[in-house]
Design a protein around this nucleic acid. Structure first.
Length: 275
DNA sequence: ACGAGGTCCTGCGAGC
DNA sequence: TGCTCGCAGGACCTCG
């Protein structure tokens, strides 16, 4: 499922194919994936626009158009964004939601099997509002130990839920929340405001390390995710807890515990290593 | 402020 | 073998 490292990989792979290209035709298969924009307006805005830049913010990929608007892609669970040089095989074409044909050949594709993702089209002001509702980037300079500690103080929710709350800090989903909490030795159910400064410091460091390592590995492929060039990521080989319920902890050998009691998400942890 | 639960959606694998 | 059913979950919603 695309979290920050996976979206970062899409953007990195897409940039050389998209920047400077013009969209000459666009089609959308399902309008219910849109938020705040009609199908007609989206297609009208895309058609004829030149792509000025492709960037990432949180778990969103941003395709900046020369008209001043941005296509904001939130891949949700199974969404992927990539450049296709030629015709797609039928089994893949079936799940294409947005197809934007480019001048000089090829196309920008948004593909989403379960269509839980969202597409938005925002102008400068709309983007400013949207961006302001998002928390700091975990790899950015604004997310200092002090800023993290301060935000923790104001919340009694389980730390795992806190990490996945995009208003508090962006980019972290279920997989990396599980991994970071294990690496930091913090119990996922511990209330955010009960973390000691030492635990908060450890957690911050491990969140950053894990995300950076996952970016370097082109993301985690658990099931559907593929990079922009169609390859699986490599971080799944480095996971310590996610998907390892019932297996021995890599540190102490204790059988890893699985639960769905936190926000109905699969949580896996070592009750001996995580306090 | 927070937890619990529903909603969107389809593919897959378990179980009968 | 072939069917049904439950599960996977990111973001957003309502209700208590």
């Amino acid at each position: 499922m695309p979290e920050l490292p996976e979206v970062d990989t899409y953007v990195r792979d897409l940039r050389p194919h998209l920047i400077g290209r013009r969209i000459i035709a666009a089609t959308l298969s399902h309008a219910n994936i849109l938020s705040g924009v009609s199908k007609a307006r989206l297609l009208r805005e895309l058609t004829g626009a030149r792509i000025a830049d492709v960037t990432r913010r949180a778990k969103h990929a941003l395709v900046h158009l020369d008209r001043g608007t941005r296509l904001v892609v939130q891949p949700g669970m199974t969404g992927s964004l990539y450049h296709a040089a030629g015709r797609l095989p039928a089994d893949q074409a079936r799940h294409v939601v947005l197809h934007a044909r480019l001048d000089r050949g090829g196309a920008l594709i948004y593909h989403d099997v379960r269509r839980i993702g969202t597409l938005r089209l925002l102008d400068e002001r709309g983007w400013a509002r949207f961006d302001a509702a998002l928390g700091p980037e975990p790899l950015g300079e604004a997310w200092t130990p002090e800023a993290f500690m301060e935000s923790l103080r104001g919340s009694r929710v389980a730390i795992k839920k806190f990490l996945m709350d995009q208003r508090k800090i962006v980019g972290i989903g279920n997989i990396y929340a599980n991994e970071a909490l294990f690496a930091a030795g913090v119990d996922p159910s511990k209330p955010a405001n009960r973390l000691t400064p030492e635990q908060a410091g450890e957690l911050r460091v491990h969140v950053r390390q894990i995300l950076a390592r996952a970016i370097a590995a082109s993301g985690t492929t658990f099931r559907d995710y593929r990079t922009g060039s169609g390859e699986p990521g490599n971080f799944q080989f480095e996971l310590s807890v996610y998907g390892r319920e019932g297996h021995p902890c890599r540190v102490c050998g204790t059988t890893l515990t699985g639960t769905h009691s936190l926000d109905a998400r699969a949580t896996v942890f070592c009750h001996r290593c995580q306090k």
